[in-house]
């Protein structure tokens, strides 16, 4: 059984729980230490795709490095699965793709996957089966015997995803998996994330491409200047910024749009229009995109921050 959090009376299983994480970096001998994470707390629910957002320097990559024990936090707690701290047994259940991956140029695609499979204690037969299936799925099978040094950026990103998935991890952590990829490459990675999530795996990924995040993640963790700005469902966040509803209809061969704030008024308006002989062809909630919400949130916090400084 995984860690159980009680959120609003509902039970929610989480595969990763971070509490009060602090991290500072020493930039140079004479300068002050730079605080990169300032009491960060959030959790990743089991079996979900969680997007990890934040501007440049918000602390996303540092948080991921702390989660994976690549950086040592100043304080705070990071727990995986059944309240476990990171260990070799926990690492067996995690797959990771770093930002701008660079892999061993002297290995071929197949050798590379075999190497990571062996490190993950997989049997030789299992490695062959899994790597063949992943290489085919990622459209890299024809390049399996080519050195990674000759791979393009998109191919490297794909083979990076393959190494993260080869041992069938329960938690997949991806740092900017779509950055620098063409639309085709981004589509491939999105599909893989969706497929992995369908198998009940949990995915935690950071990205700057908010369109893609909106399409594939059910949950969001948003950072702003080393602190948590939002944690919760993507749907809930977008609803908060929903500005009303739109009814598209035609009357006397003319197209009209009726805008309403409250859903309760809509029913009577529809009945009224039908009586007049209008044809209703679309009804939708007016929601901003995640990108608009993100910019709005960033601006709001900036204004609050500025007001705070002025009041001081």
């Amino acid at each position: 059984m995984y860690l159980i959090d009680i959120i609003l009376g509902e039970t929610c299983l989480s595969v990763l729980k971070i509490s009060d994480l602090h991290k500072t970096y020493k930039t140079s001998f004479y300068k002050k230490n730079k605080k990169v994470l300032n009491g960060l707390s959030f959790s990743v629910p089991e079996g979900t795709v969680t997007g990890f957002l934040g501007g440049n320097g918000a602390g996303k990559t540092t948080a991921i490095k702390c989660i994976l024990d690549l950086c040592i936090p100043d304080s705070g707690e990071i727990l995986f699965f059944d309240k476990k701290k990171i260990s070799l047994a926990v690492k067996e259940k995690i797959g990771f793709l770093p930002e701008r991956p660079y892999f061993y140029n002297y290995l071929t695609g197949l050798e590379f996957l075999k190497f990571y499979g062996k490190l993950s204690k997989m049997s030789n037969q299992n490695i062959i089966i899994k790597s063949t299936s992943l290489l085919k799925k990622l459209d890299l099978y024809h390049y399996k015997d080519q050195l990674l040094g000759s791979y393009s950026k998109g191919m490297l990103q794909k083979i990076g995803i393959a190494q993260a998935l080869i041992h069938d991890p329960d938690l997949l952590i991806l740092d900017e998996p779509m950055s620098g990829l063409d639309p085709d490459g981004r589509h491939y990675i999105s599909e893989i994330i969706k497929d992995t999530a369908k198998k009940g795996k949990s995915i935690f990924f950071s990205s700057h491409l908010l369109d893609d995040v909106e399409k594939i993640s059910q949950n969001l963790v948003i950072l702003k200047e080393s602190k948590l700005l939002y944690e919760g469902q993507t749907e809930e966040l977008l609803k908060t910024y929903q500005s009303g509803y739109e009814l598209h209809y035609s009357l006397n061969s003319e197209k009209h749009i009726l805008k309403l704030k409250e859903l309760s008024l809509m029913q009577s308006k529809i009945e009224e229009l039908i009586k007049k002989g209008a044809i209703i062809f679309e009804f939708k909630a007016v929601r901003p995109s995640l990108e608009e919400v993100f910019v709005n949130m960033a601006l709001n916090t900036q204004q609050t921050h500025s007001k705070h400084i002025v009041n001081k």
């Binding site: 994976l68 024990d69 047994a89 995690i94 990771f96 770093p98 892999f103 993950s120 993260a164």
Partner: peptide, 9 residues
């Protein structure tokens, strides 16, 4: 490359 390596067991 160490980042993917050390996230293995």
């Amino acid at each position: 490359t160490i980042m993917t390596l050390l996230t293995r067991p």
